[in-house]
């Protein structure tokens, strides 16, 4: 019963929606190319913003924090998700609920004690202060995510491999991990995005400029160059770009991760 009018309505809605979603992005891109007081205009703005805003340094910090967090969190989550998903052991349900409770806790509730305890340990203003709290949050989600994968898709395979005489360690790394690549890529992509975009933890934990992550650097650049909107916009584009590019290539993983991650279980 799809009439011509209905199709037209559908397209109108979709286009209006897409414009609403994209308009702010394109405004920012447009502003980023405009000439201004310090800004030569065009792509030159990015060079000036990169130079004056020290975005090279901010991106490097973000990259270090994100890569280390993602790498460690993924390995730890695979290990614990494997145990929760395929093995029987006393206390497994209680421990799993402990993780479920913990992952509902917002950063706001833990950032205050983390800051003061890290300060006492001399850990503030280090990469550790940026990585460890986010690692804990990522491991909580990752354990949940990988457990779901191991539960749903692999028990038969795991048992077959075991009966073949492959040990549980070998089964995990030689059979299940290669098979679970889509689920693992989704986990990596989500953790990367969350870590890259995180603002509060860097804001609280670091003061030295060399440790500032990209979103935090943008906020400081913002404070310095209130007048040069085009440079600020150029900086914003630089900060957003890595995740957006990743999203364009792996959008299925982003969308499924955020949406299916919430409907599974």
């Amino acid at each position: 019963m799809t009439s011509q009018r209905e199709r037209a309505l559908t397209y109108t809605i979709l286009i209006a929606f897409a414009v609403f979603a994209l308009y702010p992005m394109f405004t920012m891109l447009g502003t980023a190319l405009e000439p201004g007081s310090d800004a030569p205009g065009g792509l030159g703005n990015f060079a000036v913003a990169w130079e004056q805003g020290r975005f090279g340094s901010y991106l490097r910090s973000s990259l270090i924090v994100s890569v280390v967090t993602v790498a460690i969190a993924t390995v730890l989550s695979i290990l614990s998700g494997y145990a929760f998903g395929t093995m029987r052991f006393p206390g497994s349900t209680a421990l799993f609920y402990l993780i479920l409770i913990g992952i509902m806790v917002p950063t706001e509730a833990v950032v205050v004690p983390l800051y003061y305890d890290f300060r006492d340990l001399g850990l503030t203003d280090t990469y550790a202060a940026l990585i460890l709290p986010q690692l804990a949050q990522s491991v909580a989600f990752g354990t949940f995510w990988m457990r779901t994968y191991f539960l749903t898709s692999s028990r038969g395979v795991a048992e077959a491999a075991r009966i073949d005489g492959t040990g549980h360690w070998g089964t995990l790394w030689r059979v299940l991990v290669p098979m679970g690549r889509p689920a693992i890529i989704t986990l990596v992509v989500l953790t990367f995005m969350w870590t890259w975009n995180e603002f509060m933890i860097p804001l609280v934990m670091v003061t030295s400029e060399s440790l500032r992550t990209a979103p935090l650097g943008l906020a400081f650049f913002d404070g310095q160059y209130v007048s040069a909107t085009s440079l600020l916009a150029a900086g914003a584009v630089i900060v957003a770009l890595p995740v957006v590019v990743l999203y364009l290539f792996l959008q299925r993983h982003f969308i499924q991760g955020i949406i299916e991650g919430s409907t599974k279980e």
């Binding site: 995005m193 603002f199 943008l218 900060v239 995740v243 982003f254 969308i255």
Partner: peptide, 12 residues
């Protein structure tokens, strides 16, 4: 396009 706002850093 419609999902894009979800992945952009809130600082941006």
């Amino acid at each position: 396009a419609i999902f894009l706002p979800q992945v952009v850093a809130l600082a941006v």
